[in-house]
């Protein structure tokens, strides 16, 4: 069997997925964050951005970074079905990343949200963008979500008033293990999107261009004193 045929057998089936239209959010600092869906050409900058955070235990950055690293790699090397990656970039520099997966018609699986630039609700905006993609563009009716940090639990489970589906375990369980599964339904989304999801479309061409080539942050507030070499 030829290698490429074997490789095709290793790859998961791919569903037709709508793309996520880019949008622009003005953060409290006045900085313009372009939110767009990633393509495989972004993978180097994405992995390079995530990697240093493997060393940060505070606020569970290590576990989120480790899992997101593998999710991005799995997406790039065709080992995860129907995954998508959305990034927030300020002047091209990555401010936050979200990963997620379309499971089947009407159902999605939220993976991770990683905030690089803190204090400006970047993570909250990107999580909302991820949910927007699931429900508005992929036309799903339910998205399963877990939290791996107290911050995530407050931001998603409480603020979105997600349905607690943990009693349905093991019949319904999130792919990230046995942690309690919560669900955003279309009904919940319709009730809350006006106060959670924002962004201006279309993004002006000159701003969209700034986010074409993503760059890695040279410093992280999560890693005081750390600087990217080279």
């Amino acid at each position: 069997m030829a290698v490429d045929q074997l490789e095709m057998k290793l790859r998961p089936p791919a569903a037709e997925m709508a793309s996520y239209p880019s949008k622009l959010i003005t953060l409290a600092s006045g900085e313009k964050m372009v939110v767009r869906e990633c393509t495989h050409k972004d993978v180097g900058a994405l992995l390079g951005t995530v990697y240093p955070l493997l060393a940060v235990s505070k606020d569970y950055y290590d576990i989120v970074a480790a899992r997101m690293y593998s999710e991005i790699l799995g997406w790039f090397r065709y080992r995860v079905a129907n995954e998508f990656v959305i990034v927030g970039a300020i002047n091209g520099e990555i401010a936050g990343i979200v990963t997620s997966r379309h499971v089947k018609e009407g159902e999605g699986m939220s993976l991770h949200t990683l905030t690089i630039k803190r204090g400006l609700r970047v993570g909250a905006q990107l999580f909302a963008a991820k949910m927007e993609h699931h429900i508005e563009y992929l036309k799903e009716n339910e998205v399963h979500i877990v939290a791996e940090s107290p911050i995530g639990f407050k931001r998603w489970m409480i603020e979105y008033e997600l349905e607690d589906r943990s009693a349905q375990y093991p019949g319904l369980r999130h792919e990230l293990g046995g942690v309690p599964t919560f669900t955003l339904t279309r009904k919940l989304w319709d009730a809350i999107k006006a106060v959670k999801c924002t962004g201006t479309r279309p993004v002006p061409a000159e701003l969209l261009k700034t986010a074409e080539k993503l760059t890695m942050p040279n410093e992280y507030v999560q890693l005081p004193g750390w600087k990217r070499e080279g």
Binding site: S29, G30, T198
Partner: peptide, 22 residues
């Protein structure tokens, strides 16, 4: 918080209602 904020972003702009949430 060593971060300046702008009136456009937290009050006047189209995303202010969510960027500067209740």
């Amino acid at each position: 918080v060593q971060l300046p904020v702008t009136i456009e972003a937290i009050a006047d702009g189209p995303e202010a209602n969510i960027v500067n949430n209740y």
